[in-house]
């Protein structure tokens, strides 16, 4: 990549920051150049973020429809998936899958709730609440 070809596409996901990349200058040697983002990379990031947002919206809807517990929403909101949450809390994945059901989540002990709220770094009261909108 030539120094002039370093993309400067102002990616929104960088929030105004700049990243350093290495590129070839006119004399054929390498220098570090700041880049404000690449459109291609931004698209991939945006796709992942959109996917997460969509999952969060579904989780909110499912909670208000009584199809999922508030855990589903907080898991999405804090960017966990079931396997990551299992590693973080020490629960088995099948346990977490059960806890995503409202009638089972509502009977969880304080100790288990505390485990989840610690993983998300929120209070137990926050853990059991889901906003109407994200």
């Amino acid at each position: 990549m030539k120094a002039k070809q370093v993309p400067q596409d102002n990616s929104p996901s960088y929030s105004g920051h700049k990243k350093l990349v290495y590129a070839v200058n006119d004399s054929g040697h390498y220098t570090g150049i700041q880049s404000s983002g690449w459109e291609v990379e931004n698209f991939a990031t945006q796709m992942a973020v959109d996917d997460l947002n969509e999952q969060t919206l579904t989780a909110i809807k499912d909670y208000h429809d009584g199809k999922a517990s508030s855990l589903a929403y907080h898991m999405c909101k804090h960017r966990f998936d079931i396997s990551a949450l299992a590693q973080c809390t020490g629960f088995f994945q099948w346990q977490i899958r059960r806890h995503l059901l409202p009638h089972i989540f509502s009977r969880l002990s304080q100790r288990k709730l505390k485990n989840y709220s610690a993983a998300f770094s929120i209070t137990i009261a926050q853990l059991t609440r889901v906003p109407e909108h994200p």
Binding site: E41, A44, M47, A48
Partner: peptide
Amino acid sequence: ARLYLGHIVRMQEEIGT
């Protein structure tokens, strides 16, 4: 397929350069 390819690009470009 979309998610998979997007994921590869993310691993390649965004995460740790």
